Simulated scan of single mutants.
Amino acid sequence: MKEIAKEAWNYTFSEQAPGDYMLSVVCGGVGMYEFVIRLTPAQIADYEREGIPYIKRLAEQVRHDQAPFAAQKV
């Protein structure tokens, strides 16, 4: 596993194997938990085009509503 970017108490973005990206997002209020997703090909393309700013936006989306990402959960 190769850690690409990390912000404490926010997210960790890593590459598990070539082309296999994972995003772990810290969620919750009183009870904190990690929500980990595997990026889709479309999300990978957006990351390759925009870089870490895209990952930061994606982490915020995940933090605010995990339901749209349930199928990607690891």
Score class of each variant (00 low, 15 high):
residue 56 K to L: 06
residue 71 A to P: 14
residue 17 A to M: 08
residue 25 V to Q: 03
residue 69 F to Y: 12
residue 42 A to Q: 03
residue 32 M to E: 11
residue 5 A to W: 07
residue 31 G to L: 14
residue 60 E to L: 07
residue 3 E to C: 12
residue 49 R to L: 12
residue 35 F to Y: 13
residue 33 Y to K: 08
residue 67 A to M: 07
residue 55 I to H: 10
residue 22 M to T: 04
residue 33 Y to I: 03
residue 45 A to K: 09
residue 39 L to S: 05
residue 49 R to K: 12
residue 16 Q to S: 15
residue 50 E to W: 07
residue 31 G to S: 13
residue 48 E to I: 10
residue 35 F to V: 01
residue 58 L to V: 07
residue 55 I to M: 13
residue 18 P to D: 12
residue 34 E to F: 02
residue 32 M to S: 14
residue 31 G to Y: 15
residue 67 A to L: 10
residue 19 G to K: 00
residue 16 Q to H: 12
residue 3 E to F: 13
residue 16 Q to V: 14
residue 15 E to S: 14
residue 25 V to D: 02
residue 42 A to W: 02
residue 64 H to L: 15
residue 67 A to F: 04
residue 45 A to P: 11
residue 65 D to P: 08
residue 33 Y to V: 05
residue 30 V to Q: 07
residue 55 I to Y: 15
residue 2 K to T: 06
residue 7 E to W: 06
residue 60 E to V: 03
residue 64 H to P: 14
residue 3 E to S: 15
residue 64 H to K: 10
residue 31 G to Q: 10
residue 50 E to S: 15
residue 42 A to N: 06
residue 34 E to T: 04
residue 17 A to K: 13
residue 13 F to M: 09
residue 42 A to T: 02
residue 8 A to Q: 15
residue 59 A to Y: 11
residue 66 Q to K: 08
residue 52 I to Y: 12
residue 63 R to W: 01
residue 58 L to N: 02
residue 37 I to R: 06
residue 63 R to E: 10
residue 72 Q to D: 01
residue 40 T to S: 15
residue 47 Y to L: 04
residue 1 M to F: 14
residue 37 I to E: 05
residue 8 A to G: 13
residue 36 V to D: 10
residue 33 Y to S: 11
residue 43 Q to A: 11
residue 49 R to H: 06
residue 73 K to V: 05
residue 16 Q to F: 14
residue 6 K to I: 07
residue 18 P to E: 12
residue 36 V to H: 11
residue 50 E to Q: 12
residue 56 K to Y: 02
residue 4 I to K: 00
residue 47 Y to T: 04
residue 36 V to Y: 05
residue 38 R to L: 08
residue 74 V to Y: 09
residue 23 L to W: 06
residue 35 F to S: 04
residue 25 V to K: 00
residue 68 P to S: 00
residue 69 F to L: 01
residue 20 D to H: 03
residue 15 E to Y: 13
residue 10 N to G: 14
residue 12 T to K: 13
residue 34 E to C: 07
residue 42 A to M: 03
